[in-house]
């Protein structure tokens, strides 16, 4: 899966501008799905199997990024954020625009060295000297520019959130030979700006069960108050986060499957964050949902790290789960 993960994380597709990543995914799945659709918000919806319980698996294909909101008289591009872009991660970061233009994020960090500089006070230097010779203008979008790195078990990339979930879905679709269910592999858009793609795709699919596959922040690093989520100890089953409460019956079923097949997992109760599960849960008459998360360090920075074993275990778990009946 590593070449696939490299390809996915090195593609540029911030929220609302998911064409590029959608084409990559389409190429990977077209021979394995029974039917593929794209909806009004650009969600890619692939079905496998028919007739049984409708199960929606959602992994979002967008990533955080920026949009230019002004090119100033000296050619520096000012920007608004697409999704939760933390200022601490920006100074010196490189970005790449959809038209290929590279740029570096600058800020006056020597003026008041110990102060946090906010996004609105930063700018992108794209080598221009005036609005006239700027290769970008208002409305152009960019994402972080970082190559994929393979450290063996641990792998690093930009947009592991949530291209790693995308990779898991692609791999699960390929490995799933037979299922009694009608499974919808949904690669959602605009998750980072408020789970918007999942709202409309869930409405279209109208599933019986929803599972969001996303990353969750691992706190097994120095200087953290808590130590609850660890890299390498398996995917997490989320009881709650700020967006939704996992259906206790569904979580119980996941635990049963994981324990039977000796797949490691972690139990997670989170105070912050939210995933596509929230949107799926609220569609139509309501849907039992759960978030299946891959532990990830440095979430929403240009270098996100996950453990490859967790990724493989997540695929294994999903395949086992989908091969059999689900009674909740």
């Amino acid at each position: 899966m590593k070449p696939l993960i490299k390809k996915l994380t090195e593609t540029f597709s911030p929220s609302g501008y998911e064409n590029a990543i959608r084409e990559v995914i389409m190429d990977e799945i077209k021979d394995f799905a029974d039917e593929i659709k794209i909806d009004a918000l650009g969600n890619l919806i692939a079905r496998k199997g028919s007739g049984g319980k409708k199960i929606m698996l959602a992994a979002h294909m967008d990533e955080i990024g920026i949009m230019v909101n002004h090119v100033d008289k000296n050619g520096f591009a000012r920007f608004a954020s697409l999704g939760g872009v933390f200022p601490q991660t920006l100074v010196g970061s490189r970005v790449r625009f959809m038209n290929g233009t590279p740029g570096v994020i600058g800020a006056h960090y020597l003026k008041r060295p110990i102060k946090l500089i906010w996004n609105k006070d930063m700018f992108i230097d794209i080598g221009a000297t005036s609005p006239k010779n700027s290769p970008v203008q208002i409305g152009d979008v960019a994402a972080f520019d970082r190559p994929f790195v393979d450290l063996g078990d641990r792998i690093i990339g930009k947009s592991m959130d949530d291209r790693i979930g995308v990779a898991v879905l692609i791999e699960t679709l390929r490995k799933l030979k037979d299922t009694p269910h009608e499974v919808y592999f949904v690669f959602t858009t605009q998750e980072e700006v408020g789970v918007r793609g999942a709202i409309t795709s869930a409405y279209g699919v109208n599933p019986d069960i929803g599972i969001a596959i996303d990353v969750t922040g691992a706190d097994d690093i120095p200087e953290m108050d808590t130590k609850t989520i660890f890299l390498g100890k398996g995917p997490t089953f989320k009881f709650k986060d700020a967006g939704s409460i996992g259906d206790p019956r569904l979580i119980k079923h996941f635990i049963k499957v994981a324990e039977k097949d000796k797949i490691p997992y972690q139990r997670e109760v989170a105070n912050m964050g939210g995933t596509d599960a929230r949107a799926i849960q609220l569609t139509h008459a309501g849907v039992p949902v759960m978030t299946l998360s891959i532990p990830c360090r440095y979430v929403h920075s240009p270098s996100e790290m996950v453990d490859y074993k967790d990724v493989q275990n997540t695929v294994k778990l999903l395949v086992k789960l989908l091969e059999k009946n689900i009674e909740i």
């Binding site: 909806d39 009004a40 918000l41 969600n43 949009m67 230019v68 909101n69 002004h70 920007f79 608004a80 208002i138 409305g139 918007r196 709202i199 409309t200 795709s201 409405y203 279209g204």
Partner: peptide, 23 residues
């Protein structure tokens, strides 16, 4: 002109998320 990308919102915020999505 292009409105500067940023905060705020119009009725479009509700409309585009209606049903299975509306351009």
């Amino acid at each position: 002109q292009y409105r500067q990308p940023g905060g705020g919102g119009t009725d479009a915020g509700s409309i585009h998320l209606s049903r299975a999505g509306i351009p």
